[in-house]
């Protein structure tokens, strides 16, 4: 089972539909980073709408992927987190300061375009 990665203009969209186990998580990270490396990207959107459970392992995979993507010049925005997932992660004391968050893909895209625009302007 692979995580599909779509290209929307200069942005990448990865929709996590399956539970991220070790093997899947590794492949996911590699695929995302390879895609950024190959054609470049101004940002990465990780859509986790489908995940009803995010434990600290999965949270860290997502966070690490975001950090790695940022090193390659693609800031990451996490979109579609469910209320119960957000409550559980904060309750556990998990902070995700290194990634941006947005309510949905549209807003994530908008956010990344804003960041890319500011970067060009500067």
């Amino acid at each position: 089972m692979k995580v599909p990665i779509l290209r929307i203009g200069r942005m990448l969209l990865a929709s996590v539909q399956v539970e991220l186990r070790d093997t899947v998580a590794d492949a996911f990270q590699q695929d995302v980073l390879a895609a950024i490396e190959k054609n470049g990207a101004d940002g990465l959107i990780i859509d986790i709408t489908a995940l009803d459970i995010v434990d600290s392992y999965v949270a860290r995979v997502l966070l690490d992927t975001g950090r790695m993507a940022r090193l390659l010049g693609a800031p990451t925005v996490l979109v579609g987190m469910r209320p119960a997932v957000a409550a559980t992660l904060t309750r556990m004391g998990f902070v995700m300061d290194d990634v941006y968050t947005a309510l949905n893909i549209d807003e994530g895209l908008h956010l990344l375009q804003g960041i890319a625009g500011r970067r060009l302007g500067a």
Binding site: L78, M81, V85, A86, A87, R91, V95, M96, T101, L103
Partner: peptide, 12 residues
Amino acid sequence: LETTAAVRLLGA
């Protein structure tokens, strides 16, 4: 603070 952190995770 916890509520604020959780709301941020949602993107708000």
